[in-house]
Design a protein around this nucleic acid. Structure first.
Lengths: 99, 99
DNA sequence: ATTGCATATCGAGATTTCTAAATATATAAT
DNA sequence: ATTATATATTTAGAAATCTCGATATGCAAT
């Protein structure tokens, strides 16, 4: 269950076009990124596409992760991100009741 | 059809707890407001409940209306607001595909 | 015409978000 | 040990949002 305040934070996370864009690219990662690993896509590949600084992209990914929309796996020096579809489904369900 | 940028504006509108609260109260106006008119609830009744200034509430309602979540009807010196359920349904549908 | 009431708009200070550069951390390769 | 690479964190200025008081607008009643 995603409560009221958590949903507000989800809306905040989604109220930035770049963050939403990333979330959408991650729906079909192989379509949008040069390499897709078992745990998702690495930060630098995402950064190349969004054309914002490395630190900004890293923070955006943290923001999306903080609200549960994506999840990360660290492997060596890389961090791979992918959508957390289970949580996204739950968030969607809650938004339906919320609005 | 609600496009990408319009949805971003919807998320922005929803990323404020008070605005979401108002939207939720308007689901069952007679439960939360002293008087409900055919076209909805007047600004001053909403203002009394949220305990923010009149100008803030007026702007919040404009914000919600701008993105289509509520609609207004002016009758004399009053403006009544109610949910735009048709548009909300459409927005929900688009959010489902969007996220 | 004037007064009073409901709402909208304007202007501004406080707070938050955006974004980058610089720095830190962690790992890999030499 | 040193160097290089990937990512995270810190710091800070610019831009946007929040919120209010003041003012404007529009309508109703006198």
């Amino acid at each position: 269950m995603v409560n009221n305040m958590e949903l507000i934070r989800v809306y905040k996370a989604l109220s930035n076009p770049t963050r939403v864009q990333i979330l959408q690219w991650l729906k079909e990662p192989s379509k949008y990124f040069p390499e897709v690993y078992p745990d998702g896509v690495c930060v630098s590949d995402i950064q190349k596409k969004v054309q914002l600084s490395q630190s900004t992209v890293s923070q955006y990914l943290s923001t999306l992760q903080d609200v549960g929309l994506i999840e990360s796996t660290r492997k060596g020096q890389w961090t791979y991100y992918k959508r957390n579809e289970v949580q996204i489904k739950e968030i969607k369900r809650c938004i339906m009741d919320h609005i």
